[in-house]
Design a protein around this nucleic acid. Structure first.
Length: 657
RNA sequence: GCUGAUGUAGCUCAGUCGGUAGAGCACUUCCUUGGUAAGGAAGAGGUCAUCGGUUCAAGUCCGAUCAUCAGCUCCA
């Protein structure tokens, strides 16, 4: 009896196009790539076997489906950047002996490595490390995989590599694993599951982008490590393209455009993280608010207003105060003459106020659902390092509604809220919205309010609604809020960072805490369920992301200045002023440029100001009672009658297209 | 909050070895009245983020604070 497996002499591999190739048993990915073509063999980075990525040098012994991974695939990029992080680590080890390495993964756009070193890395070091990395590439070092028992690996990383971080990973994270893999490249060895490139020579261009700090294992109670970020490519050309893309993204940055287009300002004179809306930004915001108010009116929402501060007892009762006391502005304390004291909180959220409105009188099952809505401004003392223009502020306005309904109405109401959110996103042209089902983490029950049974029901309801609405979602364990699961709508900004905008949340906990009730058909008190929902999320964040999404080229209905009248000579100023008045009279936000500049200059300035419609007026237009229209970024649209122009623009504005 | 970087005119940026500040754009005035992305000239504009220190002398060197940026941690 032998344990030795019988390998067939040849095996059949199925390629992604469905074709089947017969190769000798023991062939590697590289052999297969070579048998297809030289170019593919050159570009090949790794192999995907039955959905699992492996080294190009791994021998195949069974019939299987394979795909050759190149840099064009997400998996290929992942392998490439992961190896680049190892090459960076080797370069750092050679330049700064004694450096120890924590985690060094590939990320969405490149890679990083966390380093513990006596040396404080500076910007200038990055150039040195880049040079060293390219030198290591030129050395054409073969990267090899070795599997070893975990105990051997512990001894190796303790005695040879002397790297306490790798030892910690081996003894804790991998404590139940018998055999681990390490990758060698010259004198550098790293604990890693792989896969990796076959040689360092694949790396042709590298850019180390920044140095920052991180906590070992992401734990703020553990030591700080220095993290170096970078990105690498198989060719110089791809790096150049990447740099060009980053520059384009910087041009779209909402902080830059917000200042240039005079939408909002941020100044320490008002306070860090407290945006001030300038007249032009205020128009964008108020148009968005009107849009949502209109939709909500159609859907049976009831507007309310509540104060900006609230008695601290309100937040103790809701449970927010203990959960979030460190991210709130400190309470305002009011001392009465008789020595008694009251404390108020700058409101960090609107729900408690709305719950009190609900319980202002007895509610009947007949009047549910009740949908209270408010653009409620809230204040949260976010950590200073978190602040980021409009997308992360300390004072912001939520388009906050609370829907009080019977349990039998819940799924319908969640669906309605999802529908409204989708309507908002599609009207504003966000197509690549990701949806996350944010569930609680059963391992960490203490973080949440409510009983496990309540959570089970809530998560079942949320899932049912999401499925009924046919939305594609991914699950985020541990992303729920403390009072319930939620559905979050996530979009990316110009720099590809993710931001949560809309949200729909189910809450069985607050109704208990606020003793919310309604009288059922049986004459008895029952507990309603609450849905928290905000399609925009925060007006500030939404507009910040919208600015980047549109690059400041707002659709006509949102544009702060919708049209500008450009008279060519002083002789037509009178008629131009009439045209402006007619447009203003039709409710179109219109400016006029009567500077003594040439029309070319006026057009250039209007284009740079991203004004959607330029109305050019010369002698010919004046004589015929017409105007010449030029559309932003499109160009001359020809002459039309003034009335026809007004009709055309009004249709476009009311259609919100 | 943590690590690193940055802070000079409204904006974008120069400013050498420490010797009291410069450009372009924008702005104002004048000239110019020009047909689809920059007409010309002149002028005005700065407590060099703030506070303190070293020095005969600080935009420049040192320290603290504030703010901003990148990332980490956090996000009702």
């Amino acid at each position: 009896m032998s344990d030795i497996q019988e390998h067939p002499a040849s095996i059949a591999v199925t390629l992604p196009d469905g074709s089947v190739k017969t190769v000798p048993s023991g062939s590697t990915g590289l052999d297969i790539a070579l048998s297809i073509g030289r170019k593919l063999a050159q570009d090949a980075l790794a192999l995907k076997i039955d959905g699992k990525t492996v080294d190009l040098s791994a021998p195949l012994h069974h019939d299987t489906s394979v795909a050759i991974l190149t840099f064009d695939s997400p998996e290929g990029k992942n392998v490439f950047w992961h190896s680049a992080s190892h090459i960076m680590a080797q370069a750092i080890e050679e330049l700064f002996p004694g450096s120890k390495f924590g985690a060094g993964p590939a990320i969405e756009q490149g890679f990083y490595y966390d380093i513990a070193s006596e040396h404080r890395f500076r910007e200038s070091d990055l150039r040195l490390i880049e040079e060293k990395m390219l030198e290591i590439s030129k050395r054409d070092i073969t990267i090899t995989r070795e599997e070893m028992p975990r105990d051997t690996a512990i001894a190796y990383f303790t005695d040879v590599r002397k790297d306490p971080y790798k030892v910690e990973i081996l003894t804790e994270t991998l404590k139940d694993v018998a055999t681990v893999s390490v990758y060698h490249q010259d004198k550098f060895t790293d604990l890693c599951t792989g896969p990796h490139l076959s040689s360092t020579s694949k790396l042709k261009a590298v850019l180390l982008t920044n140095i920052s700090s991180s906590y070992w294992r992401g734990d703020s109670s553990r030591e700080n490590m220095q993290r170096i970020y970078g990105i690498a490519f198989p060719s110089e050309k791809q790096l150049k393209e990447h740099v060009a893309k980053i520059e384009e993204a910087r041009r779209r940055d909402h902080r830059k455009l917000g200042a240039e287009l005079e939408l909002f300002m941020l100044t320490p004179e008002v306070g860090s993280g407290l945006p001030v809306w300038l007249p032009k930004g205020a128009i964008v915001r108020s148009e968005l608010e009107s849009f949502l108010k209109e939709e909500q009116r159609k859907r049976g929402y009831l507007p309310v207003y509540t104060p900006h501060i609230g008695n601290i007892e309100l937040y103790k009762r809701s449970g927010h105060y203990p959960y979030y006391s460190d991210s709130q502005f400190p309470p305002l304390t009011y001392h009465d003459e008789d020595g008694s004291q009251e404390q108020y909180l700058l409101k960090p959220m609107n729900c408690p106020h709305h719950h009190l409105i609900y319980s202002n009188r007895i509610r009947s099952y007949r009047e549910l659902p009740i949908r209270l809505t408010e653009f409620g401004t809230v204040y949260r003392h976010e950590q200073s390092g978190e602040l980021n223009g409009l997308v992360r502020a300390r004072g912001f306005t939520q388009d906050d509604s609370h829907i009080y309904c019977r349990p039998d109405q819940l799924v319908d109401e969640i669906c309605n809220a999802i529908d409204l959110t989708q309507h908002v996103f599609s009207t504003l042209g966000f197509s690549n919205v990701q949806t996350r089902l944010s569930l609680h983490d059963p391992e960490n029950q203490a973080k949440y309010g409510g009983t496990p049974e309540v959570w089970e029901q809530a998560e079942k309801d949320v899932r049912e609604a999401a499925d009924r609405m046919g939305i594609e979602y991914f699950i985020g364990i541990g992303e729920a809020s403390f009072y319930g699961p939620k559905i979050d709508f996530i979009v990316r900004d110009a720099l590809d960072r993710k931001w949560q905008l809309g949200t729909v949340q189910v809450d069985y906990v607050m109704p208990e805490r606020f003793d919310l009730t309604y009288i059922g058909s049986d004459g008895q008190k029952h507990r309603p369920v609450v849905i928290h929902r905000a399609p925009f999320g925060s007006m500030e964040r939404f507009i910040g992301v919208l600015i980047e999404h549109t690059a400041g080229n707002f659709p006509l209905w949102l544009a702060p200045v919708q049209a500008i009248v450009l008279p060519i000579t002083e002789e037509v100023h009178d008629y131009a002023a009439e045209v402006q008045q007619a447009l203003l009279g039709a409710g179109i936000r219109t400016e006029i440029d009567t500077r003594s500049e040439k029309v070319g200059r006026k057009i250039r300035d209007a284009e740079l100001a991203k004004i959607p419609c330029m109305v050019v007026i010369g002698q010919k237009e004046k004589e015929n009672g017409e105007v010449s229209l030029r559309r932003h970024r499109i160009g001359d649209a020809g002459r039309v009658g003034l009335e026809a122009l007004i009709e055309q623009l009004k249709t476009e504005i009311t259609g919100r297209t």
